[in-house]
Each structure stands twice: as C-alpha cells, then as structure tokens.
Design a protein around this nucleic acid. Sequence first.
DNA 1: CTCTTAACCTGGACGC
DNA 2: TGCGTCCAGGTTAAGA
Length: 270
Amino acid sequence: MPELPEVETTRRGIAPHLTGRRIADVIIRNPKLRWPVPADLAERVRGWQIQAVRRRAKYLVLEFDAGALLIHLGMSGNLRVLPGDSPARPHDHVDLMLDDGRILRLNDPRRFGALLWTADWRSHPLIAGLGPEPFDEVFTGDYLYERAQGRQQAVKNFIMDARVVSGVGNIYASEALFRAGIHPARAAGRIGRERYGRLAAAIREVLEASIAAGGTTLRDFTDPSGKPGYFVLSLQVYGRADLPCSRCGSTVRQQRIGQRSSFFCARCQH
DNA sequence: CTCTTAACCTGGACGC
DNA sequence: TGCGTCCAGGTTAAGA
C-alpha cells in the first residue's frame, strides 16, 4: 500500500492525536509481522509520553524520551485513530491505548509491516543506511548522477533503492520517470546530468502533489480517519496499460522490470 | 560493491 | 459455486 505520500498522509493524520499523549497500555493480538513485535513492548512504553511523530523514508517514528517506536506499513498496513471501545476486526494486530481513551490501531493483512522498539532510532540498522529524503536539499540531479556512475542497473530500480533515495516506491517511480521522459529500463549509468536534474525534480513534484491529494488509494489505503487518497486520479502511467498516453496519445505499455510491474510510454520516454 | 532472485503473507480478480 | 492461477503499494537475505 504505502509509499512516501501515503506514509506522510498517515503521519499528518495521527500526529495531532498522538503528540503529548501518554501510552496507557498496549494490546498485541498477533506479534508475527515482518519481525516479531517485542513481547515486552507494553512495559517499555506504558506511561511514557509521545514527544513527536516523525517520518523517515517509509518509516513512522513515535518518539519518547526513553526511545522510539518504529512503524513500517509494508504493503498492506494501515493506522487508524479510533474510540477505545472499537471492536477489533481481522488483521487488527496491535493497539496502542492512549491516555485519552482512544487507540492507535495497526491493521495489516499481509503482515509485511513492522513495529519495533529502539533506544536510538537514528542509528537503528534499518534507518542508518537510508539515502536522503527526496525533499532534502542534498537530493539533487548531481547527487543522482554521481551515484549512478558505473551502474548498469535499470534506472527504475536505481531510484527505488532506499540507499540511493528514500521513499520512492513502485507507483511514483513509474510516474516520475514518465514526467522526466526517461525510459525505466535505461541503465542508470547511461543518463546525463541534465536528465537527472529533471528526474530529481520530477520525483519531488510527484511526491509533493500526491501528499497534497492525500496519497494514492488503489485498493485499500485510507488515512487515519478512514478517508481514501485522490492522487489515483492524477496518475499518468501507473495502472494505465493499453490506455492512451496523456501526452502523445500512444499506448501506455506495461513491462516487468526487476520483478515489479512498470508502466511507461515508449514514445515519450527514452 | 553490484545486481538478481526468492521469500515473507493474505486476499481479490479472473478463467474454467 | 468452487478451485487454481496470477497479481498487489515493500524490503531484506542470500547468492552469483
């Protein structure tokens, strides 16, 4: 489900309800996510106050004075803020019970998500090696160009590598490459500085526009109040196989690149 | 280091 | 209706 815009939409939805609240208790119905939810989680966070709700790449970070909860939504994860007496439904794996009587509930059918405790989240192994945020000033066309030198990998896989730039997933990789006019299968090392400048800008623009629209709902994404995102209406190639290209009218193609479905216009992208 | 592949898991869509 | 197959927004661990 979630790429950067969906995670950011989630963050913006939960932050006002969580910041300053204390954790009253934790209910773990099923600890079997990508990694086991720590069995002693309740003892770790009970009574502590949430100082801030941050996002790094596709991770949400609930900061406490004593450490942080790292939450990843995987492919199908969803966070909701609900009244404390809301009955649990299938795949409601974890509840954080807040001191105002409400709960933060994690639902994740496929269980590719994660919920981990860390004393120092910035140095956590899952976080430390991440590349820059797309909105960070160091993320530029020159940065991409330098990192790409000598690499034969398809540029779509290159920009989806979280060590290169964090937060670009399968939807927005296709969309950004379309906006930049770059063929997704082109070798990353065979693209010039100028075109990388356009790609860096396209990545930022498409992510920004999607955040403004509340993210992309393909099947089941909702924000923490249950509302879908509307950026699906602005997608130009993703999910549009065999439909006309919005720019030139030629047919949008679908092709597997690095075992992920990729969408592009062979006439507009080279 | 670079790159590819398999694996984790459930559910919905589709064809027969 | 039921059953098999394929597909899905992510990421890492293993191996070449």
